Simulated scan of single mutants.
Amino acid sequence: MAKDKKKIINDFGGIMYSTDPSFVYNDETAATNESTPNSQQDLRVTLDKKNRGGKAVTLITGFKGGDEKLVELAKMLKTKCGVGGAAKDGEILIQGDFRDKVILILQKEGYKAKKSGG
């Protein structure tokens, strides 16, 4: 189970308290967490070396969907590449330079994946 992100005051659009008993707050983030079909996902695959002690990681960005789907995709990519990694903040990190392999795997799964950056 993924932890729910802690809500801060900015998440509520400035509404702090309502005396209206029929008031219902519409949570816009719940609507954005609906899964987007794989064919409509436009993922970018880059090689990132910044702030990692010189180690290279393959970074996949642009995923639209819930945290559970993100973790599931990350687990599948880590398994097929045979390396470690992480999934957080809407991004997937795969340890090492696996850009070409990740793009092929994502395209087989039906995602639109492109190599970006150097």
Rank of each mutant, 00 (worst) to 15 (best):
K55R: 15
T29S: 10
L59W: 05
K75V: 14
V24R: 14
D100F: 05
T46M: 15
G14C: 04
M1S: 05
S35D: 15
P21M: 08
A2F: 08
S116R: 15
K64N: 09
D100I: 01
Q40I: 06
L73K: 02
V102P: 06
A74D: 08
G110T: 00
T32M: 14
D42G: 12
D100P: 04
G13C: 01
G84S: 11
N26D: 10
A56R: 00
K80D: 06
D11A: 09
I15K: 10
Y111A: 02
K114H: 15
L93G: 05
S22C: 03
L104N: 05
V45Y: 04
N38D: 06
K88E: 07
M16K: 09
K64V: 02
I15A: 05
K6E: 12
F98G: 02
G62M: 04
G110H: 02
V57C: 12
A113W: 02
I103R: 03
N33M: 15
F98E: 00
F98L: 07
K7W: 15
Q95K: 08
C81A: 02
I8D: 15
V24P: 01
S35T: 12
L43S: 01
D20A: 12
K75Y: 08
K7E: 14
V71A: 09
Y111T: 08
A30D: 13
G85C: 11
E34H: 14
I103M: 00
G96D: 07
K3M: 02
N26S: 08
N10S: 09
F98A: 05
S22I: 07
L47C: 13
K115D: 09
T36S: 14
K114Q: 15
G66Y: 02
M1A: 06
L59Q: 11
K6C: 08
L104R: 01
E72L: 08
S22P: 02
R44V: 00
Q107A: 00
Y17D: 11
D11F: 12
G110P: 03
T79K: 11
D42T: 13
N26G: 11
D100C: 06
P37H: 10
L47H: 11
K6P: 05
V71C: 02
K114C: 13
K7T: 12
N38T: 11
K69S: 06
L59P: 07
K50G: 10
G53I: 13
L93Y: 05
R44A: 07
N10K: 11
